[in-house]
Amino acid sequence: MTKPLVAIRSVSKNFGEFQALKSVSLDVWPGEVMCLIGASGSGKTTLLRCINQLATIDSGGIWLDGELLGVREQGGRLHRLSEREIGRQRLKTGMVFQRFNLFPHKTALENITEGPTQVQGRKSDEVRAEALELLRRVGLAAKADSYPAQLSGGQQQRVAIARALAMKPMLMLFDEPTSALDPELVGEVLAVMKELAKSGMTMMVVTHELGFAREVADRVVYMDQGAIVEQGRASDVLGAPREERTKAFLSAVI
């Protein structure tokens, strides 16, 4: 039996008094495209950020590619990994942020080559060639030397996707990738994401774009108040939800 790429077991996370995640467990399989939906504050973004350790979990464990994230088991207790180790673990995931977070003082090309050359120490000509290919793949080969301020929101997000892909991750995390975009720019980003899904990348996408979920997701997970309420095939969760809360959410959104 193949192992899940991501195994989340009884993960809880609090922000002070507020319980963002309440003992959440979930598996993500290689090549799967998973969409997480829910109201804000439901914990979906927090869950994503726990996977690439931008947030630290309070209890439970997350395994990525069989490796326990953020801590080491020793003598019956858990010890935090060093910053270096965590950085290494982060290389296995790529993240695309809601507000793109491109480096404004670097060109599109430089944004993409930054990680591979600086963090992975790879040769710059190789990296450059790959970066240009990635730009072509997201449809922005002509914008290689443009600065983020010269690009539209949709273009910036596509560069951000290329930047994440340049690290050759095994899992791509998308945190509401189109929420900050003007409606007419959403399509170009979703197109890139669809192509990526088709190419077999494992993706976890937090989104409000239910059309995208319906079209591309292998599994849809609905979260509310820090817990998974319902999950299953897109057609099931979105078309014929079982839970009352899911129904209520969907009718409010549509």
Binding site: N52, G87, R90, L91, F97, N101, F103
Partner: peptide
């Protein structure tokens, strides 16, 4: 400097000091 910059740097595997040096300080 927006904290998102720092997070983006971390997301591509940069440690705190390298993120400061290459991404945060120049901005």
């Amino acid at each position: 400097v927006d904290i998102g910059q720092y997070e983006a740097a971390q997301a591509i595997g940069m440690g705190r000091l390298r993120a400061l040096r290459r991404i945060v300080l120049p901005q």
